[in-house]
Design a protein around this nucleic acid. Structure first.
Lengths: 336, 336
DNA sequence: TTTTTTAATGACAGCGCTGTTTTTTGGAAA
DNA sequence: TTTCCAAAAAACAGCGCTGTCATTAAAAAA
């Protein structure tokens, strides 16, 4: 199994090296019969282009990076899978990169990363996408990048996001339709874009239905399971405990389950719980969690596509995805 | 910010291109003063070697692949992080690859993957590491690889594994020490190496203490949360329900929590539960799960190191890691 | 000191491909 | 039929580095 080069293909097909290159790269101005000859030779020889040589000659690497940090495993892995699928489809390879955005030497780390990697572009996932040092390093290198769910929408930067506000309105409609009238909210950390959007939408949706913000029993968590327990206990011990709790992500919603177990509160009979993300934990509690599914896989795919588009056309792409309500066992009409 | 090449460094340092190359690659036979000159020039110019050019000239890519499939998110992500850390330390890049080992065209997928990627080696994670088609494709390409926790121990293949049997013995010692004498076991799928090792060790440890295998209330799951619920219900409804259940992974153990909630069984008062892996879900149940921590991160790091060693010395490395008992709230002395 | 051996450095080709430039080709217009 | 012109194909250089060999400097032996 020795290496087959573009020269071998050219000889076999009786054409020039460059013509083979044209066919391989789907360039215009290739007559069908030539293409056929080349395709035949490629198939016969089992030729595959050499990435390194292409990279060196063309000045691009055919590698895309994906930057992530301190992630919820289920979320991150879905992103990785989506980005990987899109890369394969486009003939690219996916290189993983990771920074600790809570460290102090982010800029140095990033510079080192970028200098040697020679990537064609980078997909930046939260929370790295909201980190100034990360973005600065990317800009300094003039490396094209796409942001996944960034807090601020910079019109000059390609990004993919989900429509959190609309999703939360759907969630409220669902709970309201079941008959719930007293609500609890577990808010996320202030530093996190998602918690801001979700809180505001929740409050707005209830205001539309005549609730004052002060009617909502609110506690704050950290987007983690254990913080959800504390927040859940706090809310359920309120003087007028709600019949439904919205936790701004699934991990905290799962924490509410643990809190409910401690207090002997039955889900969904005594309390309905909804989360957000449809991450893996949503199906790892009992009853399974009603939540909003974010199309994370598709969002990551789209991010790669936007990155590749940007490479070709220099156009800054934007795309927003809708979420879907996934109704499972954790919501039911209130008892009274 | 234009590109700095090895020639620029050579000129700046007043030495030959090749000498710079020697310094960059830490080759022997370089005098300290020359190295100093080159290092200085490299620093001044901010030079970083070009991966593509190196790859082309040296016939190796400085890219390592990691193959994974259908993974438990927490487990996979830990592997990824460990492999990534070791790659960075060695000046390599990590490319992710994924196959669906339940598909029928594994061989074609793998061949396509390997042909274009031009990797220097591959870390193969379970369950792909036990798939014949995957291994055959790797062998055909003569691509060096390391197996992570493979079922069969082929002496000609580098591998990293954990000492499951010893770990299970520790687990049994813990439960026995608490006073438990009636045990339940949730076995994993037969196709999975880990379930075999863990079951056998559990039975053996109890036999040492005078139990017959038939004394153990056993049910079978699929390493998933939902299968753990079913298995848990089955065991708890047995005529003589056990006071402690060992689930062969954390997901199934979490399922037991859900089953216990349904039956009104209190953990750990009425029932102790232990899992295996110390995956993310172990801390996302309440009370938190007592389990065996596998050093997954370190195992993945070691896998990369063995791969690199193999590249240099052609020596087949092997390493086995010990697990650590993590005692959390899900185990306690039995009530009666 | 001179000669031999060894270590350190340099010169040069070429890895496999693509961008650019030049040549050829086929077909429409004259 | 010949001329002209675009489109298609070929020629060729070179991307940035490392392997191989030739050369020089240093160390050891004579």
């Amino acid at each position: 199994m020795k290496k087959v080069t573009i020269m071998d293909v050219a000889r076999q097909a009786g054409v020039s090296m460059k013509s083979v290159s044209r066919v391989i790269n789907n360039e215009a101005s290739v007559r069908p019969d030539l293409k056929a000859k080349v395709d035949k030779a490629v198939a016969e020889l089992g030729y595959r282009p050499n990435f390194a040589a292409r990279a060196l000659a063309a000045g691009r690497s055919f590698f895309l990076g994906i930057l992530f940090d301190n992630p919820s495993p289920g979320y991150t892995l879905q992103i990785l899978n989506g980005a990987y699928a899109a890369c394969r489809a486009a003939g690219f390879q996916l290189v993983i990169e990771s920074v600790d955005t809570s460290a102090s030497d982010i800029r140095e780390t990033m510079d080192g990363l970028l200098a040697s990697a020679r990537l064609d572009g980078m997909v930046v996932t939260p929370p790295a996408c909201d980190n100034a040092a990360v973005i600065a390093a990317l800009d300094a290198r003039k490396l094209p990048y796409v942001l996944l769910a960034p807090i601020r929408d910079n019109p000059e930067v390609a990004s993919v996001r989900s429509n959190d506000a609309a999703a939360v309105h759907d969630l409220v409609r669902h709970l309201w339709g079941l008959g719930h009238r007293r609500f609890g909210l577990i808010d996320g950390p202030a530093t996190h874009g998602a918690s801001q959007w979700r809180r505001e939408a929740f409050v707005a949706a209830l205001e539309e239905r005549g609730h004052a913000p002060s009617d909502i029993v609110t506690a704050t968590g950290e987007f983690t399971f254990s913080s959800g327990i504390g927040a859940g206990l706090q809310i359920m011990r309120a003087p007028q405990p709600p019949t439904a709790i919205f936790a701004e992500n699934d991990d905290m919603a799962a924490g509410v389950f643990a809190a409910a177990a401690q207090l002997g509160v039955k889900i969904p009979d005594d309390l309905s719980v909804v989360g957000f993300d449809d991450s893996w934990i949503a199906r790892s509690v009992w009853p399974e969690l009603t939540t909003m599914r974010q199309p994370i896989f598709e969002m990551a795919e789209e991010a790669v596509r936007l990155l590749l588009d940007f490479w070709k056309t220099s156009e800054v792409g934007k795309k927003t995805f809708d979420c879907t309500l996934v109704t499972r066992g954790s919501t039911a009409p209130p008892r009274r």
